[in-house]
Structure formats: structure tokens, C-alpha cells
């Protein structure tokens, strides 16, 4: 009996610790998951070279390969931010889509080391001719 009780206390502590960790993560991270590109530019001085996430749309025709890096322009509310990304962009990366970047401001551009491709809640068939009906 004593043993079961002790084990249950231990389990309780593990669960509470896990919850505490998650809430801590949530408060620190989840409530402000990203800053939009225009907000980031407005807060440029406060941000300094701090690491944060920035969100915006990839400008059409701005994507260029520079050595091992990729450079492109990010836009939100008609504010543009030049970006340089270290390494290869993810498979689904393409001009026009919304992305979240992780990195920091460096000089006059945003230096990114991770591209997260955002996705909207809409789903459209790749080959529309195969779809005969739409749910409306």
C-alpha cells in the first residue's frame, strides 16, 4: 500500500512537472509566436540582434540563390524586409506563400536559419479537373 502510494505521488509529480513545463513554454513562446514583418520593422530598435520569429509573404520574383544561401524579400502590410536564409529552403517553399522565419536582424537584412511554411485552412485539389463537385 505504502509502495503504491509513493509511486502514485511520484506519478503525480511527474505529471505536474510536465504541465508546468508546458505552461511555461506556452507563456514564453506561444502567446507571441511571431511578429509580422511590419511590426518587426517598427520594433527594429528594441529587437536589436535578438532572436525572434517573423511572418510575411514571400514576394514574387524576389527569390535568388546566393552561394549556399537563398535571398528573398518578405512583405506584410506593404512593408518589405530583405531576407537572407542560410541553407536550403523547405520543399514547399515558393514565391507568394506565407512563411515564418526564425533568426535575427543583421545590418539591413533579416538573417534566417529556419523557414516554416505556413498553411491556410483552405484545401484545393492540385488537378481541378479530377474534382467534379465542390462542397458549397
Amino acid at each position: 500500500m505504502i509502495d503504491t502510494r509513493r509511486r502514485l505521488w511520484l506519478a503525480g509529480i511527474v505529471v505536474l512537472a510536465a504541465l508546468g513545463f508546458l505552461v511555461f513554454q506556452g507563456l514564453g513562446n506561444a502567446t507571441l509566436y511571431f511578429r509580422t514583418a511590419d511590426e518587426a520593422v517598427a520594433q527594429r530598435d528594441q529587437l536589436g540582434d535578438r532572436r525572434f520569429r517573423i511572418e510575411g509573404d514571400v514576394v514574387d520574383g524576389s527569390v535568388r540563390q546566393v552561394g549556399n544561401d537563398v535571398s528573398f524579400t518578405l512583405t506584410k502590410a506593404s512593408v518589405e524586409v530583405p531576407v537572407r536564409h542560410k541553407g536550403d529552403p523547405p520543399e514547399l517553399f515558393r514565391p507568394g506563400i506565407p512563411v515564418v522565419l526564425e533568426g535575427r536582424f543583421q545590418g539591413d537584412y533579416f538573417s534566417s536559419d529556419r523557414i516554416l511554411v505556413r498553411h491556410s485552412e483552405t484545401y484545393v485539389a492540385e488537378n481541378p479537373e479530377r474534382v467534379t463537385t465542390t462542397l458549397r
Binding site: Q25, G26, A30, Y33, P90, I115, L116
Partner: peptide
């Protein structure tokens, strides 16, 4: 997205 997990509000 390119990641298994991220600490956004929905996932957390």
C-alpha cells in the same frame, strides 16, 4: 512546416 514540433499556441 519542416519541423516535427513547434511551441505555438495550438500545439502547446
Amino acid at each position: 512546416w519542416g519541423v516535427w514540433w513547434t511551441w505555438d499556441a495550438r500545439l502547446t
